[in-house]
């Protein structure tokens, strides 16, 4: 990059000093950011990939050799298949649930009058900025075994006869994750709805379409890219979520992120933890890039 910028300098002697300074300017403006990211993102990531090939023993610690031991262990031990399967399952259910609840809510929000819309947008998007620990703590309080408020409420409504187990279950993790991820989905659908030409609904109406037809044939197809891009965000964040599975799922219900944490800070088997993290990263990159490409190809004519 720096080489490219230097070679584009004007070679003619006629070039004046300010011109030359201008063409050099972007380099000096970008250089700090570039150094920062090379030094503190690219190098550490490369070191982590390398680490995943190192050997480790209870007493010898990390040995800087290149072996496939960790990768072999992940590939063959069914414990990891189960754990990655659980991670994927939780992320998928969370994604579907946020889409099914968040998209209608964004639509309802969009039809509200200005002032209410602003208030509810703040209430629904606001939690995004509130500490995940605080939010998940709220769910832990609501779930809290048989004495949890959620169970008390459901039983007093007569919906269930005996308390449901939420804490330390996948159901509980999914409910709390849906709550944590929901603002991303609402935001994404909301943005798509803002791009919708409001006259289009009137046009469909004037051509004889009823409200359900308008929703199904006119609004939904145009909002779908927003739903899908929201789904991609929610999926990748859910699959790598840490705080919620750690607090609601407890010590037994491991997902990729909590397992990596355990390997690094409890077992101290860094190479194995690095392999889990790298696999999570690679898997997510593949899924996200693939899904993005599909969405873009499918909805080329709708997206601006």
């Amino acid at each position: 990059m720096s080489a490219a910028a230097t070679t584009t300098l004007p070679a003619t002697p006629a070039a004046t000093a300010p011109e030359r300074r201008a063409s050099r300017a972007p380099l000096w403006l970008i250089l700090p950011a570039l150094l920062l990211f090379t030094g503190i993102v690219l190098v550490p990531l490369a070191m982590t990939v390398l680490l995943s090939f190192h050997d480790w023993g209870q007493y010898k610690g990390i040995e800087p050799v290149l072996v496939l031991k960790n990768w072999h262990e992940i590939a063959t031990d069914p414990y990891y298949a189960e754990m990655f399967g659980r991670t994927l399952r939780i992320a998928l259910i969370t994604t579907v649930a946020t889409a099914l609840l968040g998209a209608p809510e964004a639509y309802i929000l969009n039809r509200m009058s200005g002032r209410w819309r602003g208030i509810f947008l703040l209430l629904i998007l606001g939690p995004l900025l509130i500490s995940v620990v605080a939010r998940t703590l709220g769910w832990a309080l609501l779930f809290g075994g048989a004495n949890g408020l959620a169970n008390k409420l459901l039983m007093s409504l007569g919906l269930i006869a005996s308390p449901l187990p939420f804490l330390f279950t996948e159901t509980g993790v999914v409910i709390a994750l849906v709550h944590v991820m929901m603002p991303f989905m609402v935001l994404s659908v909301w943005a798509a709805l803002q791009r919708l030409n409001p006259q289009v609904e009137h046009a469909a109406m004037s051509l004889g379409a009823g409200p359900l037809t308008i929703l199904r044939r006119i609004v939904l197809p145009q909002v779908m890219p927003g739903v899908l891009s929201g789904a991609i965000i929610v999926f990748s964040l859910s699959a790598s979520a840490f705080a919620t599975p750690a607090i609601i799922g407890g010590r037994r219900l491991k997902v990729a992120a909590t397992l990596a944490y355990d390997e690094f800070l409890n077992t101290l088997n860094w190479p194995l933890g690095a392999a889990v993290a790298v696999l999570l990263l690679l898997g997510l990159i593949l899924i996200v890039v693939g899904a993005n490409a599909l969405v873009e190809r499918r909805y080329a004519e709708v997206s601006p």
């Binding site: 993102v41 070191m47 982590t48 680490l51 790598s240 990729a256 990596a260 999570l280």
Partner: peptide, 12 residues
Amino acid sequence: PHVVLGVAFLRF
């Protein structure tokens, strides 16, 4: 994922 960044930073 932040967990990956955490791992990478710890190593680094």
